[in-house]
């Protein structure tokens, strides 16, 4: 289970997250929608402390951390219990596909090499990249790179996967292979937070959809509720604008 209690984030004087409360049960898939600058990325990045939240409580898998008194060990625990998939993939460019996935196991979890390799091969099989093990990121298509990104995030077997616009940098024809990979991971019962502009995808994959604006959660509900009967005026506007842009 994942719980966020009253998360606030300031950048200097700019108030970017204004008290986020969220409780997500195991296996739940939550999509986060919202206009640019609403704080979606910041929210994900506060969960794994890529950004230090200003105040609030983050709880993941029974580990409860008051962000204002978070120790190094707390941050490490949060980071290893989350896996992040970045818009720009952010693969380690000097490492092969296999090593990108293995490195978390060998240098963070301190697994033996052959054990790490076995696990990594399993995961790479799931994202369909066993034929690219010894390629470097520069030798892969964007879609393949993002699938490695997903494999790397899965390697530490995190409680939750955080996706920040995983398909936004991709050429349109490569979006589907990545969405298919995300679907297949979803089918394994992994808890996921997905920030996305792919409304159709969000609608079909999510258990819950959250609409954020200006640092607050404006509205949340099942995809059915949110997409067909949005309550808040701002949600309606966002959805109609987003569907017109399609």
């Amino acid at each position: 289970m994942i719980k966020l209690e009253n998360i606030h984030k300031y950048y200097d004087s700019q108030h970017v997250l204004k008290g986020i409360n969220l409780e997500v049960s195991k296996g739940e898939i939550v999509s986060i929608l919202g206009p640019s600058g609403s704080g979606k990325s910041t929210l994900l990045r506060c969960i794994n402390f890529l950004e230090q939240p200003t105040s609030g409580i983050v709880e993941i898998g029974g580990k409860r951390v008051d962000v204002e008194s978070a120790s190094k060990a707390d941050v490490f625990a949060l980071r290893t219990s989350t896996g992040m998939v970045f818009q720009q993939y952010n693969l380690f460019k000097n490492l092969t596909v296999l090593d990108n996935v293995m490195i978390g196991l060998t240098s963070v979890k301190q697994l033996k090499k052959d054990e790490a390799k076995k696990k990594s091969l399993d995961i790479l099989e799931r994202v369909g990249l066993t034929n690219r093990l010894n390629h470097y990121p520069a030798q892969l298509s964007g879609g393949q790179q993002q699938r490695v990104g997903i494999a790397r995030a899965l390697a530490l077997n995190p409680e939750v996967l955080l996706f920040d616009e995983p398909t936004s940098s991709l050429d349109p024809e490569l979006v589907d292979e990545v969405l298919a990979t995300i679907r297949s991971v979803a089918a394994t019962g992994k808890t996921m937070f997905i920030v996305t502009h792919e409304l159709q995808f969000a609608r079909e994959i999510s258990d819950r959809v959250i609409f954020m604006e200006d640092g607050v959660i404006v509205e949340e509900g099942t995809p059915e509720q949110l997409f067909t009967q949005p309550k808040a005026e701002r949600t309606k506007q966002f959805l109609s604008k987003a569907s017109r842009n399609k």
Binding site: L50, R79, M84, N90, G104, A153
Partner: peptide, 19 residues
């Protein structure tokens, strides 16, 4: 982005730098 990815998987600063 690579610094962030390394942090996100819990790598220590030393491991991140060296590897």
């Amino acid at each position: 982005g690579q610094f962030e990815a390394a942090k996100a998987i819990g790598m220590s600063p030393t491991a991140m730098m060296l590897k």
